[in-house]
Amino acid sequence: MLKRRIIPCLDIRDGRTVKGINFVNIIDAGDPVALARSYAEQGADELVFLDITATIEKRKAFAGLVERIAAEINIPFTVGGGINNVDDVAVLIKAGADKITINSSAVKRPDLIKEIASEFGSQCVVVAIDTKFTEDGWKVFVNGGRMITPFKTVPWAKKAEELGAGEILLTSMNTDGTKSGFSLDITAEVSRKVNIPVIASGGAGTMQHFRDVFFNTGCSAALAASIFHFGEINIQDLKKYLKSENIAVR
């Protein structure tokens, strides 16, 4: 049976992991490769690395990090941050990334999805959608959630699929950072309306939150950052718990 996936997300700035961690077995907590290896050993199914470096010069160094990750990590990984065109993607894929993720740049120019998919295949295009519930329903936000767009979430997800996205990474801004659980309604709706895998993101605080999003929605994977980084939830323990709740995990 196909398993639901658990995906830790690492924010990278200037080649280092941004958020602190307390794992005893990691000597250099800021080294993304050491952290990634530790997650892989705990049973993470995939990894996401988001480059939040502000300058273009430093962003180029990100490809070097991607090469190190690809050399050492034996599970699939996605990278994103600052991808605006096919050339940006080519650098990262060549460095060894399995998938790339785009967000604002896809909203600004939806054909970018098609261009990347036709060059590298749909399987490597993860379209990230930041969404928030407004008086006008669930809307798409860009620029790190700072700017609202005219797009409604479900039609945009469907459009992304149509253009060749291989996966949707759906982050609910209503729950992101709150540790109050994933937004089940929009996750369920997007998962139902598209025929590509959906990764739920935003709001994970407890192991039960993962169980709830898998039990109540058709999402294929769940992503979280801080609860893994700070050691609040160990991935191995999380998977043991999900198995005991009859959720199919590796």
Partner: peptide, 13 residues
């Protein structure tokens, strides 16, 4: 056949 999500993506036994 398009009766479930395609691609088949992820871990399977």
């Amino acid at each position: 056949p398009p009766v479930d999500k395609i691609p088949h993506m992820g871990w399977n036994d």
